[in-house]
Design a protein around this nucleic acid. Structure first.
Lengths: 178, 178
DNA sequence: ATAGCCATGTAACCAGTTACATGATTGA
DNA sequence: TCAATCATGTAACTGGTTACATGGCTAT
């Protein structure tokens, strides 16, 4: 139920088209929420019907026209109400861990290769996050109020990826020794 | 697509009824995969049609009869093939982080309360994992081959919960100071 | 009495993925 | 010429959740 609210949050921050939102989900925000453009367009349609957002057509020559969405009063209200609701941590469903758990069904090399592959992926994300973090740090030495909260979500992303890498290294070592 | 394989792995380990599987998903395995009983029963039906599992009726008096499932030869083959496939890390979708990101839309107490609530939930899970870990450690001082892989998934669960708690504490502190 | 465990399922719904579709502009 | 970027969407499908249904046994 939260893609809806993720979109409202993004639009509250700054109006934009479906295309723009898709971009933003692929940057810093992708760290805690993700959505494909198909899903975004459908959701924007629904949100418009519910009057939680509205758009203005921005005509362009050559390219298709942009629909620039913004959050409405009603939308903002719905969003602040949602902020008071409780949400439980998402349940984990991770195929890699099934494979590790049942690793006796394959040879160690196959398992180790998949572990290495995941390590690379996590290292890549970590690097991207750290690049963003560097930008935060040079912008404002004493952390400003305004930026604190987004910064915290970035910190979470960094910790998350770092933790994965540490565990993957641990797992790799122990499997090799066995 | 992996609930299927999670179930096959569990049945490869030890045959059992849908009810049994639901239990197991709520214990150690719940750490990396989850499924409700409704989903399990449906999936078992499908797996039976595909001949990846088979069951024997175990009649009981008073209680409904148990269908005790086991993995078939075909099922085992499908499973070992799946072990060689690549799976990317799951995408993250976490409502709490949306709320932190957009925390300016509510008062700090509300945000801090939700953070504390999550901290409690994670601490609870961590304690459960650590209890399991203690059992591993007393069973076998020098880690046995057979148990290594399941143990690694448990380690992952412990690290994951611990990491969450650390971040939640960091977030709490920084929000209070601001 | 009441709650919780044992044991099975169906049906409706919602969220997310994959496949398909269009088409101009810009840079290598 | 080929790939990428800009910009929009529809349709079919799959995976997961919520609601509903049944019913005896056991322990407090």
């Amino acid at each position: 139920m939260s893609l809806k609210h993720a979109i409202l949050v993004l639009l509250e921050q700054e109006p934009g088209s479906g295309y723009d939102l898709a971009q933003r989900f692929n940057q810093g925000i992708g760290n805690f929420w993700n959505a494909s453009h198909q899903q975004i367009y459908q959701q924007l349609k629904k949100l418009t019907q519910e009057s939680l957002v509205q758009f203005e057509l921005e005509e362009q020559s050559g390219k298709p026209d942009r629909k620039v969405y913004e959050i409405t009063e009603t939308g903002l209200q719905a969003l602040t109400e949602w902020m008071r609701e409780e949400d439980n941590p998402p349940v984990v469903r991770d195929a890699l861990l099934i494979k590790v758990f049942a690793g006796h069904l394959t040879d160690p090399q196959t398992l180790l290769a998949e572990i290495q592959r995941h390590r690379d992926l996590h290292a890549e994300k970590l690097a991207a996050h750290q690049a963003l973090e560097a930008r935060y740090n040079q912008q404002s030495k004493p952390k400003q109020k305004q930026q604190l909260l987004p910064y915290l979500t970035l910190r979470r992303g960094i910790r998350y990826e770092r933790e994965w890498i540490e565990w993957l290294d641990e797992a790799q070592q122990m499997i090799q020794q066995s």
